[in-house]
Simulated assay, not measured.
Amino acid sequence: MKKWTWWVVGVVGVLLLGFVVAPFVYTRFIEGDAPERLTVGTASPSAAAGESVSADGAWKVGADSQAGYRVKEVLFGQKVEAVGRTGEISGDLTVAGSSVTEGEFTVQMANVTSDQNRRDDQFRGRIMDVAQFPTSTFRLTAPIELGTVPAVGAQAEAEATGELTLKGQTKAVTFPVTASRTGADTFEVSGQIPVKFTDYGIDNPFFPGIEVEDDGHVEFLLKFTR
């Protein structure tokens, strides 16, 4: 009887240890750390740093731009940060003096990927329904005031106000942005837009073993060229 009792205790102990250790090992050594937040770069060595060049005119989203989501998950008791991104972005903006007067960009949602296929399947299906809502957009509704025209190599911080559309729902948003003049004909803008899922009719992306917070961020790094 004692042997049977100790055997049962041992099995239960091993199972409990597995439930604790396995998720820890998975999140720390298999899934790994989330990518760093998207931030603007600096002027290239060939750029004339400090040179004051007019930024007036139309600019388009160029190569190597990125946009996506960042949300906190609890995976079998272990806290992780889930990040999904895509480079399939289009858009443009207009600059007049030290103001960004117009701007809009569009993200192809079916191309957003993370480091986990199961997460991506949930994202494209139940969560964002990309078949019905293939794109998400942001449109500027008020000028972004930079104060001065950033010289090559300089950075500026400001606030952007506009309309964010996710899953067919449009909401007004205001958030900080950072702009960097990386060259006479190039500049970058990065930002994080807070998002509460229920505001956009997005079900909490919960599935067995994984809990997700009720809000997250849309993050972006847009690289513009003339």
Rank of each mutant, 00 (worst) to 15 (best):
V149S: 15
D33M: 08
V25Y: 08
L140D: 09
N117P: 12
V25D: 02
R28F: 05
G201P: 00
G191P: 04
R28D: 11
S98P: 03
L75F: 13
T101I: 03
G41N: 11
V83E: 07
G168L: 01
Q108W: 09
F133P: 10
R28E: 10
S90W: 09
T174H: 07
R28T: 14
T178F: 04
G18I: 09
G32F: 07
F187M: 09
S54F: 04
R118D: 11
V71I: 14
P150N: 05
G68S: 03
P176T: 12
P205Q: 03
D64I: 09
D129P: 07
A67D: 08
A184E: 01
F123P: 11
A96N: 12
R226K: 15
T165L: 05
V95C: 04
V20Y: 14
P23F: 02
I144Y: 05
L75G: 02
F105D: 06
E73Y: 09
L16E: 03
S136L: 08
V130F: 02
G77W: 02
V11R: 01
S190D: 12
W4D: 12
A67C: 10
A47I: 00
G13V: 13
G201K: 02
A43K: 01
G32W: 09
P23D: 02
K3P: 10
S114C: 04
T182L: 00
F138H: 04
A158C: 06
T170R: 07
H217D: 14
P194S: 05
R37E: 15
V80H: 11
T135P: 06
G91M: 11
A43D: 00
E188L: 09
S136Q: 05
D115S: 14
S190E: 09
F24L: 13
A47W: 00
D56P: 01
T27I: 05
L164W: 08
L164R: 06
Q66C: 08
L222R: 03
G103F: 10
S180E: 12
E159K: 13
L164N: 10
S90L: 11
K79P: 09
P205Y: 00
E102M: 11
S99G: 12
V9P: 05
V212H: 03
G162D: 06
E159L: 10
Q169M: 12
T137L: 13
A184V: 00
S52W: 00
P205E: 00
T101A: 10
A131V: 15
V177G: 01
V177P: 03
R70C: 04
L16V: 15
V100D: 11
G103T: 04
G97C: 08
G125M: 07
A47N: 01
P45S: 00
V80A: 10
D121T: 15
T39R: 15
A184L: 00
L17R: 06
L16P: 11
E159M: 13
E51W: 01
G41V: 03
W4Q: 11
L140F: 05
D129T: 07
Y26Q: 01
P150E: 05
I202F: 02
T106M: 08
L222Y: 06
Q108V: 15
P134E: 01
A172L: 10
